[in-house]
Design a protein around this nucleic acid. Structure first.
Lengths: 241, 241
DNA sequence: CCCAAAAATGAGCTTGATTCATTTATAATG
DNA sequence: CATTATAAATGAATCAAGCTCATTTTTGGG
């Protein structure tokens, strides 16, 4: 009976954990509609029909609880991202799907994510958290698409993957932020669209050459070089002061 | 004497305010070296050689104090951004300068910025804060460069300015975040470089075409030269220390 | 030197997270 | 079915940090 009983125990514990996590996410979503006021443990306990102290039997402290809730979120997100990318299509479309998914989901749980993450934002010890690992697993989906795109020749091969990743998720997160400020979902979607254009054009491997326009122009090249050198000189002057 | 005396009073008050703000920024920078533990008012008061209560005579509450410190930071940053952009050079160079400046400064005061901002991140009422106004004034510098770039024909005109702005600052902030995780300034600079390439190519009008595989590509050549020069500069910087 | 106004202080209040002694529920055993 | 050991839950008490305000100290004009 040992084994069976212990399994039942574990299931019960996990069930209650899920209850508390669901309550947490719910309270954050609710609170979002009103002012972005910070969420109390008391509120989460109430939502889950538990006494305040009970929450601490399942999670070490508030921070751990929020992190677990975020982990939950990332789990879902990663699953869905994998599914989105599994269907056969070109690199650009895959990236667009990932962008769409990321933008929407992050927008939905923005308060939870920002509150859970903010203690780590300033700290290099974020690397040690479970959330870091989960985030890593999540962006791995993106990385695979990018690596595949490079192999296919869709994406230029002279950029570091982390830089591409930063450009992608950084831009999207700013779009989400800006969307929250405006409160206009439609504008936001247009913004994401424009962002995707910038990003995509930026990473794509050069389109097949066209001779005319861009062909080498000696005079122009010299001028451009002069400008570059001028810029460097000014930089140095400023540094010298 | 009324007027003269009141001016002196104001000066004294402003001086003390500056003291407290400087202490605040200092404590955040110090705390950064250790774990990113959160800063207490007590610590700021100690740094400024004041009793805790005194701080509250000059700032309504902690949040207001942090915001004032951030405002201080933005003031400096805006001034320097304006100066950087004032010198005559092409759009790409201006953007690179702005990127460089933003990246470095934000990296330096990251903990302060994130802690001061985090209460507003989830909230649309950020629009009402003074920091929002200051941030607006700051990005205005960027917006001008972009608008000018569009007018000159350097930047494509089919993208919304906010989207361009999001792409720029979003990408940079992720670079900064990633730089804090790695703790390797040099990697980070390379990442910013790559990011800038993506961004620049993405927004530029007609990315310079190249004629056939092996043909000489002016833009690529310039970029390569820039990288070489950048490398030399870094070498010099390192030698200088 | 004296005093009123200004500035500063720090003990105590408040709020919200966290702990833990106690109570309540569960379920195995005689 | 009563007994009792164990698990689960409770909420009153503790703690920490932001914040207030009655009191003390400093300042500057007469």
């Amino acid at each position: 009976m040992q084994a069976v009983e212990s399994k039942t125990r574990r299931q019960k514990v996990e069930e209650k954990e899920r209850t508390i996590l669901a309550a947490t996410r719910q309270v954050f979503r609710d609170g979002d509609k009103e002012g972005g006021k910070d969420v109390k443990i008391a509120a989460i306990a109430r939502e889950a029909n538990l006494a305040e102290g009970t929450v601490y039997l399942y999670f070490k402290n508030k921070q751990a609880l929020l992190m677990a809730a975020v982990s939950d979120f990332y789990d879902e997100l990663t699953r869905d991202a994998q599914a989105a990318v599994a269907v056969q299509c070109d690199t650009g479309t895959k990236l667009a799907k990932l962008a769409q998914l990321h933008f929407e989901r992050v927008l939905d749980e923005w308060p939870l994510i920002t509150e859970a993450m903010s203690p780590y934002l300033p700290s290099p010890q974020y690397r040690e958290t479970e959330a870091f690992a989960l985030n890593r697993r999540y962006v791995e989906v993106f990385d695979l698409v990018v690596r595949d795109g490079i192999k296919r020749g869709d994406i230029r091969n002279d950029l570091s993957i982390p830089a591409i990743r930063n450009a992608f998720y950084g831009g999207l997160e700013h779009c989400a932020r800006s969307a929250r400020l405006r409160l206009m979902r439609l504008d936001a979607i247009a913004e994401v669209d424009d962002f995707l254009t910038i990003f995509t054009v930026g990473i794509m491997d050069r389109p097949p050459a066209c001779a005319g326009e861009g062909a080498l122009d000696g005079a122009a090249l010299v001028q451009q070089l002069e400008r570059v050198i001028e810029g460097v000189k000014q930089q140095m002057d400023r540094d010298a002061t």
